[in-house]
Design a protein around this nucleic acid. Structure first.
Lengths: 120, 120
DNA sequence: TCATCATATGCACCTCCATTCATATGTATG
DNA sequence: CATACATATGAATGGAGGTGCATATGATGA
């Protein structure tokens, strides 16, 4: 018997597949959202701009940990900051943040509704 | 001098912040998209359902690696599968997948347009 | 029921990264 | 210019997860 062949469909798919670099950048972007601490920071900033020590207090974490994560978020243009004396306030840089997280939220809630349906 | 106080705003933010469990689940969901291999698999399935060995061939990776990642995707309801003889075909389970990735895509391209503007 | 193909699973290794600790930078005030 | 506060940075550590290898499961056909 011969191993089954799928060259035709593979050629189609291969042509439509974006370049590796783009796919890497895209997964790198989602990697940012794939951490609880960063997700909490972003949700906090939904409400209001906040200084570093306020976020640290809110999440019950050490200040350097927050600073490291804020740097990641800033490097990826998800947040920006402004200085006011000694204090530095961080805020959301982009409305895509809200819509990306919103889509994820929808998927989660829909998934749970389906689970509940099956239970009934 | 006294350390600066931000209790008022923190109380507001704290009340609006979703429960920890939800924020964990949400970042866990985005973690799925935060891997190049899984991103490639999802993009491939945009075009057509595919069997495991076709995906492995397309990505130039070993079959068990693909199986492991397909399991992750399936456990999180992002893909589903059907059997046809010995072959198992995987396909996208949810249109949220397209819209979540689409939002990420928009953020990337917008970010790049801004970089180009600054260069000019 | 034996051999072959398609896929799944278990385990070990290795890399990546989030956090911590210590310390540096920056800013106002006295 | 010395001190205190706010934040950033660097190095080290510990844990999570992606991949490869070996092997198990499952299905088909002779």
């Amino acid at each position: 018997m011969m191993k089954h062949n799928h060259d035709e469909i593979l050629n189609v798919v291969r042509n439509e597949l974006p370049p590796d670099e783009l796919l890497c950048d895209l997964s790198d972007l989602f990697k940012i959202f794939g951490d609880t601490t960063r997700m909490k920071i972003l949700f906090s900033l939904f409400e209001s701009e906040l200084c570093v020590c306020a976020i640290a207090e809110l999440l019950g974490m050490a200040q350097p940990a927050i600073s490291h994560q804020l740097r990641v978020l800033k490097n990826n243009k998800l947040v920006d900051c402004r200085r006011e004396g000694k204090t530095i306030y961080y805020f959301l840089a982009d409305d895509h943040v809200r819509s990306i997280i919103g889509q994820g939220f929808d998927h989660l809630t829909e998934e749970r509704m389906m689970k509940n349906d099956k239970k009934i």
